[in-house]
Nucleic acid binder design. Sequence first.
DNA 1: ATCTATTCCTGGCTGC
DNA 2: TGCAGCCAGGAATAGA
Length: 280
Amino acid sequence: MPELPEVESVVRALAPMLTGRSVKNVRVLNRSTVAGSPRKPSVLEGRRVERVLRRGKYIVVHFDEAFAMAVHLRMTGWLGVKTQAQVAEEQDKFVRMVFELDEAPGRGAEWLLFRDIRKFGRVWCGRREEIIALKSFNKLGPEPLAITPEAFAERLHAHRGRLKSLLLNQAFLAGLGNIYADEALFEAGLHPLALAQQVKPDSARRLHAAIQAILGKAISAGGSSIDDYLHPDGTPGWFQRELKAYGREGEPCTRCKAPIKRDVVGQRGTWYCAKCQKKR
DNA sequence: ATCTATTCCTGGCTGC
DNA sequence: TGCAGCCAGGAATAGA
């Protein structure tokens, strides 16, 4: 499941392949993949890529003439570049959108593909200011790798909810998902059900440090390949091997050897060590 | 403000 | 081998 480190890995891989290239043609193979009203991916035809960046879990592509595209991979989305020959050979029924690219020096005819098994992923196309103004995009909270410990603690204490739910709330912090929320709470030694408002200042600081450390390590590892996530070139990330709580029900805690527990918190599977993650 | 349930969607798993 | 039924889950949405 792509979260911040996975999306960051996608952006870093795609940026050198896409920057400077033009989209000749856009084809939509699954209508619901294209979000927005009106749906208008054809506005990107003839536009040249200026930048590829990340905001929260969104991949954002800036085009010339102030056009832009935002992509959310949700559960099973994948972006990558393939040659026309590869695409023809593979006959991949899960490709939902195809962007025909111009021929760059040293590269033949290539297509940017959006592949998505479960069709939860979404692509928005339009003018840059329209994309930025999208309400789902506009209400995103701060970037977890940019926020200061002080600002983080202040935000934390301004909320009444449970830590796990808060970390998953994209308006609170943009980019954490189920995997890294559990990992950050484990690392900080905080219980998923702890009330945000009751978290003591030193615990808030530990949580902030844990979030930044986990995300930094996961980005360096190319993210976690769980279920379907793969890099744009088809290779897996390897941070899944470093996970200490997520998906490890029954396995011994790496700190105290007690078995990792799984509960459901806010309709999400939640893994934690009941012995060393305390509610306060 | 916060919480819960529901929807989207399909591969993979379980059980018969 | 086949098939029905269930599950996971990010985000939007509605309702409490």
